[in-house]
């Protein structure tokens, strides 16, 4: 029919979506290399300054000493890191379940939106560090108070983002599907859930970064294991290199969690990333 007339403009547009391969590789390599180079320069400067001014090790150890502490205490660090990882994973799972559950309630149940949402926001004004010792009194000295602190810190961005995402769905889209004869459940599954996933992942990424902080706070208040506990033990003994080594491991833990979430997002939201790329290339102004 009128096929050839239609194919032409669309075809050129799609062709633009894949830029020349070598340029893309160079951009990708540079994207990783730039922050690494800056980091290396800063670490080098640190090493140099500490040596030049002969700063005592208990005050500020040079990066080389931290590296040494990391290697010498690897078994110790690994043991404590495992405990912290368990706290983070459990707390994160709790946050995800309650966060998504609350978001669904807020989005689809007017009473919950009125009653729960303000409380969810108010809960974030309570300093977690203030109630952490209370949790210790209430639930005990074991893993549980840490899991609760992690969950308290990381459920908030999940609830808020997911609820926003569920409410951001175009009501006309819902009408269109209903007019086709879709049930409420079909509308929910085919439009509202996929539409809110990018929001949910934004929330999870923020939560991932925050959850490690939560675990450390929980351990500082009272623990017998974990990287936070290790730091609290090492600092008063002036084992500053070990404190830094623990910080490094904690940071690696946070980054690993973030990358895990980002990877899951990439798999789940291929359309979203391809849309962002199209926008970056100015395909659809």
């Amino acid at each position: 029919m009128l096929k050839s007339a239609w194919d032409q403009p669309g075809a050129t547009e799609v062709a633009q979506a894949t830029p020349a391969a070598p340029g893309r590789w160079r951009a990708a390599i540079w994207q990783w290399l730039a922050p690494l180079l800056l980091l290396a320069a800063l670490v080098g400067l640190w090493e140099l300054l500490v040596r030049v001014f002969q700063t005592p090790r208990w005050l500020l150890p040079p990066p080389s000493a931290i590296g040494h502490a990391l290697a010498a205490n690897s078994a110790l660090l690994a043991r404590h890191a495992l405990v912290t990882t368990q706290e983070v994973a459990a707390g994160f799972a709790v946050a995800l379940a309650t966060g998504v559950g609350l978001a669904l309630a807020i989005a689809y149940w007017r009473v919950a939106a009125r009653a729960v949402y303000p409380l969810v926001i108010a809960s974030q004004t309570i300093p977690i560090i203030a109630i952490a010792p209370l949790l210790l009194v209430w639930v005990g000295y074991d893993l549980r108070p840490k899991v609760i602190v992690v969950a308290l810190i990381s459920f908030f961005p999940i609830v808020v983002n997911m609820a926003d995402g569920l409410r951001a769905v175009d009501p006309e889209m819902v009408n269109m599907l209903r007019s086709l004869g879709a049930s409420r459940w079909q509308v929910f599954r085919k439009v509202q859930v996929p539409g809110s996933l990018p929001y949910l992942f934004s929330g999870i990424k923020i939560a991932a970064a925050a959850s490690v902080i939560g675990a450390v706070i929980g351990e500082w208040v009272g623990a017998s294991a974990g990287l936070g506990y290790l730091m609290v033990q090492a600092a008063p003994r002036f084992q500053t290199s070990l404190v830094f080594a623990a910080v490094l491991v904690l940071s690696a833990l946070g980054i690993a969690l973030f990358l895990l979430v980002a990877g899951a997002e990439r798999l789940a939201l291929r359309w979203h990333h391809s849309a962002k790329r199209a926008k970056a290339l100015d395909l659809n102004p």
């Binding site: 669309g10 547009e13 391809s274 199209a278």
Partner: peptide, 13 residues
Amino acid sequence: GLSGFAQEYPHNL
């Protein structure tokens, strides 16, 4: 007029 575009996402159209 959509042959060849079955697997494209809407933002590419």
